[in-house]
Amino acid sequence: MRNFVEKTGRETIYYVEHAGMMTIFLCSCLIRIFTRPFQLRAIIKQLHFIGAKSVFIIIVAGSFTGMVLGLQGYYVLQRFGSLDMIGSAVALSLIRELGPVLAALMVVGRAGSAICAEIGIMRTTEQIDALECMGIHPYKYLMVPKFIAAIISLPLLTCLFDVMGILGGYFAAVVLFGVNEGSYFQGMYSSVVWADIEMGLIKSFVFGLIIVWVATAKGFFLHLDRSGAFGAEGVSRITTKAVVLSSVAILGSDYLISAILL
């Protein structure tokens, strides 16, 4: 009994401490975004890594998502004889939900894990200590370019995902099933409003922040993780944790944002 109470207390303290540490980390990084110098070169490098290198996977994922929406939409709407809604069904579900969420999950898998592993390896090989000892602040030097790049990249990748999805839906519905091209696009134009696009953008912005926050913080605090692992095994464990945590956080915050904005 006493053990159980003790354990509960210990767990709670650990999680509260951990959450506090991560929050302080986030705030310090965000504040440092606005301090000089602005590392343009490093930001471009990170934009290349997080943004540009994700384009291919976003295009592929976006097109297939759109195609499957077109396909499913066609079979469902056909039963109710409302095939002219297919354009708006595809566009709305992409812009409001699937675009931001799927694009973010793709980036978690591609860039989030890599960022976490990179920072984790830098921690285990004392590269972060070396930075500190050179008088270079690791938040400013390492984290801030990643934060800026992720916050810029995610909304843009989401837009790309949406457009590819709409084209994919066009391919499935219009080219494969012969839905009227005009009704596909016209239904879309008349039903999508700016508020939908705005919602998608807000979501992708928040998701970008979540991805880069979880990845960098998990890697940076690798040595404080409870599993106590260091070295290669620690990096792999922490990367898995970061991917799981950011995916769950993305889906959870997706619900929260939808509930607040609707």
């Binding site: 290349h48 943004g51 384009v55 837009c159 790309l160 949406d162 457009v163 134009y189 999508v192 705005e198």
Partner: peptide
Amino acid sequence: LFLIASILSFAWLSIKLGD
């Protein structure tokens, strides 16, 4: 290239669809 392509997508979404 990435920035231009995705900003074009954004422009299309907001002007054509977002009115």
